[in-house]
Design a protein around this nucleic acid. Sequence first.
DNA 1: TTGTGTGAATTAGTTCACAGCA
DNA 2: TGCTGTGAACTAATTCACACAA
Lengths: 207, 207
Amino acid sequence: MNPMKKIPQKTIERLSLYRRLLSRELSNDRDYIFSHQLAALAHFSSAQIRRDLMEIDHMGNPNKGYNVAHLISEISLLLGTSKVKNVGIVGVGNLGRALLSYFVGRREDLPIVASFDQDSNVVGRHISGCPCHSVNEIKDVIKEKNIQIVIMAIPLSEVQGVTDECVEAGIKSFINFTHLPLKVPESVFVENIDITLVVEKSAYFAE
Amino acid sequence: MNPMKKIPQKTIERLSLYRRLLSRELSNDRDYIFSHQLAALAHFSSAQIRRDLMEIDHMGNPNKGYNVAHLISEISLLLGTSKVKNVGIVGVGNLGRALLSYFVGRREDLPIVASFDQDSNVVGRHISGCPCHSVNEIKDVIKEKNIQIVIMAIPLSEVQGVTDECVEAGIKSFINFTHLPLKVPESVFVENIDITLVVEKSAYFAE
DNA sequence: TTGTGTGAATTAGTTCACAGCA
DNA sequence: TGCTGTGAACTAATTCACACAA
């Protein structure tokens, strides 16, 4: 696969889904799968699947389809699952705790190694086995623990200040659950998940 | 505004954000705003802002910019905030509770009127003031309480069965936090928020 | 001037449709 | 035959660039 080729964001997302679906198929002892079968699992079109697999130069066989194990390993190679990337989470309110309890121990390659809050009642404690630091120490802890991805789950308005500190400490990727758009340099990735906006959009499209 | 014109999904999302940002400006006594000023708040380009406002046929003034109050009311007209749409949530585990505690009482036009679970320890109780029903009764409750939007927050594999019942009961819009793609008819809207996929994507783009 | 409104151009994402292979 | 791989067509989304208004 050509390492120079830049793969679209949407494709990355779908590949990630394919891998999960394929893993389930593999554990059901399926060795080969056709594009239309994977399409049925993901609820996409088979053309979409083939186009996505083209991006990673994966070769299938018109008779048997795609080799499941092989496909999984190629997607994993692309998504870089072999390299561990440490995750930090800012805010251990309801949402932060829900994310922690879901994530901790689930993915070895994406461990949540630290949480941050400014409430002195939680700082110093462990939540779902994850140590909680003061948000004031975030820069140092990011460097110490080599954190590369930060999840923002604080309801506060000083999100931008914390974001700036993270960027200064070298963070290149954020997942933003707050209701404020984050200002970051061009090269930094931000995925916004603004639940209020999602509900409003859903309301709009509920006819 | 031409009611026939179909507005792109992305634009709806951004308009929803603009409204929130504008409301804050309005409460800071700002009467008019230029596209580049709103752009600075949302971290978009001013061309993007103007293009979006074109969709709702909003007219600005080259000298003063856009009238904030007027703009808010036009966006609200489009997003239909005047009509109440009832929301139901399936699953009151960590995530479900986090969403409930965040949402209950926050939006009068989008009230969470019921929650559903299959754990008999929570069925019959109230969580954040919201009654929890057995998931077996979902069809009846949707009709009784006129629920129009369903949030899926169960970690279970029978999500599809519940989805089917919701569709049969007339649900036209889902927000899916589970890790399974939902199979729904063409006309039904689904917004997928799969946190594992989001983290994987963020990891990929963390350089 | 300065900022709006918008055609035109560009870029991103998806679907079509079919040659060619096993 | 039935599926893959892929150019070509299409559709969606964004950005450019500029006439025009106040």
